[in-house]
Amino acid sequence: MLKDITLGQFFPGNTIVHRLDPRTKLLCVILYIVALFNAKSVLTYALVAAVLLVCILTSKVHYKALTRGLKPVYIIVAFTAIMNLFFTGGTPVADVWLLRHITFEGIRSAIAMVLRIIMLIMGTFLLTYTTSPISLTDGLERLLSPLKKLKLPIHELAMMMSIALRFIPTLIEETDKIMSAQKARGADFESGNIFQRAKALVPILVPLFISAFRRADELATAMECRCYHGGEGRTTLHVLRYQTADYLVLLAFLALAVGIIVLKHLGL
């Protein structure tokens, strides 16, 4: 059943990684990505991988959770690997059949690309695993708040994100109910060709949309009744404050990113 899907990617915990300010974590992920994309050599890859490993270990997130997160992208990883393997120019590995198309450079870049994708995904998943969606949107809003001066609707976007997060479980439950109700009227979602299956979704999607609109309407009224009038003059229950640990961690990641770029320019 749909209910069994674990949507909350967040694994609550009380490690230093969990306790860091969400803004710190967001910035660190950006710096980490910069470092990763500038890594060109074995040395620099090893450096970035070491940092990732330290983070994973301190966060106490089970490695199985991380590898599970990789499952949906296995195909992309495999595709990238094959493309790089066959379509990179250079010295062929050997002059027989398929191997003629595979170059040493191809092997090298395939490995590099696969490592890069895996490390990229693991890094970002670590962020969502250790940060609750609410503090993530909170941190994002705070980080982007300078853009409000440019009349960008940052508060509205953050509010939309957090309401979407709030209603995902409710809508999943609702989908489940509607599916059962239509099955009770003999609806068949499991057989037929793609076209028939798509058509079978109509009795689920129409009620779901109607209900979502009704909910949105009622929620808007309820929010107005609770004095919501946009982001202006709003205060918050939880105030984000950088701690010493945040500065130290930020500094470390900054050093990583700068270090990798310097090493790249040194040809290492």
Binding site: R166, L219, Y228, T235, L237
Partner: peptide
Amino acid sequence: DNQIVANVVEEDVAFAPENLGI
């Protein structure tokens, strides 16, 4: 279901005072 805004109870209760700038 259609009047709870946040996905943590205390955050939801805090919604109105936050709007009021308390």
